[in-house]
Amino acid sequence: MTTEESLVLPPGPPPPRYHNKNWKLISQGAEARVWLIPSFFSVSSTTTTTISSSSHTEAAICKERFPKSYRHPALDLTITKSRTKSEARCLVRCRRAGVHCPAVLSVDNNAGGQQLQTESDGENKVRESSCLFLEYVRGCTVREYIESRSSTLGKDDDDDDDEPKAKKARLDNDDNDSPKKEKERGTTISTLIDKNALHVAYEIGSLIASMHNANVIHGDLTTSNMMIRNPPSSSSDDTNTTNTTTKEEAEEDWKAQLVLIDFGLAGTIGAKGGVSHEEKAVDLYVLERSFVSTHPGSDDLVSEILRAYKSKCQKSDSVLQRLSQVRLRGRKRECFG
């Protein structure tokens, strides 16, 4: 790796050995880093009529679980590899069951890593990273879609044409604490509930039901971990009546294509022949809490999600009954700590 390339590297452990300057870091957390690879593989297409062929490159996502220096090397290696294989296994299982999620392209549990000196012999040993290569899903998250359509009311609510852009910038800056920050400013965020929003909510419930029918638990169901492949166009020329009419007609017939992402905390259930309704209920409870904290006034959307889940999921009555018990435990924890 050249000096020029090393200047653009993010802080933290070294990237995989095949990292190059074209890789773009999307996000980094305590567990892993997510890279965008613009040209991961080539796809060739041949036309029989003209006897000509063409090729184009496809992007991919690399989820790199880097080594943790605070863990024992043997334990760290076991945990890192186990979690990578578990995530890949859950994704493959969901794909086979018809659940919309990224395709697994490759798994590399020996992707290079950092040199660490052991206390016993003083030698430098390489702690390996584990990389999971996934299909790159284009579009926007469900959270971005809902927030772009939400309205803000309060003392800062003026007739300003740029208000939606300013509100979105504030939401992006405040991240998960955005509802709290908006309350401090004297404003109130109201989630827009219309036909399209209810349609997205119903698709979310159907998608979760399909995943649970495949005996897979996501573990981190939030609107940030759901993508819309075909979000409706957000830009139109208001001065052109034809374009405006066309956009309205397109949104009227719009059918959202949802994709579940980030299966880092996912797991399979029913390993001993029994199905855990408790884990499914906790999955739904996590989603409920994410709506409450991130999208105020979205109770109708949650109800629509549960309605779709009840109609699509096997043994949904038992799961929803257990969900009521999980809610009670959650409220008791909030009251008494």
Rank of each mutant, 00 (worst) to 15 (best):
Glu334Asp: 15
Trp23Asn: 07
Gln321Ile: 11
Ile146Leu: 14
Thr118Asn: 14
Ser210Cys: 15
Leu75Met: 14
Glu248Trp: 02
Lys63Gln: 11
Ser235Ala: 09
Ala30Thr: 07
Leu171Ile: 13
Ala59Asp: 12
Arg96Leu: 08
Asn20Ser: 14
Gln114Ile: 13
Pro11Trp: 04
Glu304His: 02
Glu5Cys: 10
Pro296Ile: 04
Glu252Pro: 06
Leu260Val: 14
Arg331Tyr: 13
Val216Leu: 01
Thr3Ile: 09
Tyr70Asn: 14
Pro38Trp: 01
Asp194Trp: 03
Gly273Thr: 09
Asp299Arg: 02
Arg127Cys: 09
Asp220Asn: 14
Val319Tyr: 00
Thr222Leu: 07
Leu7Glu: 14
Asp121Ser: 10
Gly154Cys: 10
Thr118Ser: 13
Arg185Tyr: 05
Glu184Phe: 03
Thr246Tyr: 06
Val216Pro: 13
Phe336Leu: 14
Gly98Met: 10
Phe66Val: 08
Leu171Tyr: 07
Arg170His: 03
Cys101Arg: 02
Pro164Lys: 04
Asp121Phe: 00
Thr48Ser: 01
Cys94His: 11
Glu334Arg: 06
Lys195Pro: 05
Val92Met: 08
Leu7Lys: 06
Ile269Ser: 07
Ala59Phe: 00
Gly274His: 12
Ile146Thr: 08
Ala103Glu: 15
Ser234Tyr: 05
Lys180Leu: 02
Gly297Ser: 09
Lys81Asp: 08
Asn124Tyr: 13
Ala197Glu: 11
Lys310Trp: 03
Ser53Pro: 01
Asn230Ala: 02
Pro16Ser: 09
Arg331Ile: 12
Glu147Ala: 05
Leu77Phe: 06
Thr49Gly: 03
Leu207Arg: 04
Ser236Trp: 07
Ser44Lys: 01
Lys247Gln: 11
Lys180Phe: 02
Pro15Lys: 04
Ile26Gly: 10
Pro11Gly: 12
Pro179Thr: 01
Arg329Thr: 08
Ser82Tyr: 08
Glu252Gly: 09
Phe66Gln: 04
Asp283Ala: 06
Leu7Trp: 03
Pro102Met: 05
Thr80Ile: 13
Pro102His: 07
Ser178Val: 01
